[in-house]
Amino acid sequence: MDLITLLKALILGMVEGLTEFAPVSSTGHMIIVDDMWLQSEQFLTKYVANTFKVVIQLGSILAVVIVFWNRFFELLGLRRRDASQVRAGGGLKLTHVIVGLLPAGVFGVLFEDYIDEHLFSTATVLIGLALGAFLMIAADRFAPKVPKIRSVDEITHKQALAVGFIQCLSLWPGFSRSGSTISGGVLLGMSHRAAADFTFIMAVPIMAGASLISLVKNWEYFTLDALPFFIVGFISAFVFALLSIRFFLKLIDRIKLVPFAIYRLVLAAVTYFIFF
Rank of each mutant, 00 (worst) to 15 (best):
L58I: 09
I137N: 04
S191H: 08
L135I: 10
L257W: 05
S211I: 05
F276M: 00
V97N: 02
F111G: 07
A237D: 04
F21S: 00
V99M: 05
L10H: 02
H192E: 09
V186Q: 04
Y272G: 14
Q159T: 13
M30V: 12
V99C: 03
F222T: 06
F165L: 14
Q39F: 15
K148L: 14
E41L: 13
D253K: 07
V54C: 04
Q167R: 08
M14R: 01
P259Q: 15
F234G: 02
L110I: 12
K145L: 12
P103L: 11
D153W: 06
R254M: 10
Y272D: 04
Q39C: 11
L3T: 13
L12M: 13
F142M: 08
V97T: 05
S170N: 10
H118G: 03
L224D: 04
G28E: 07
K145N: 12
K46T: 14
M136I: 12
A195D: 03
L126S: 04
N50R: 12
S40N: 15
W172A: 06
S180T: 14
Y263A: 13
S214N: 14
L58M: 12
L267G: 01
V125L: 04
T124I: 03
G100D: 05
M1Y: 12
A237W: 04
T95H: 08
A9Y: 04
I235R: 03
F43L: 09
L188S: 02
F247C: 07
H157E: 13
L242N: 07
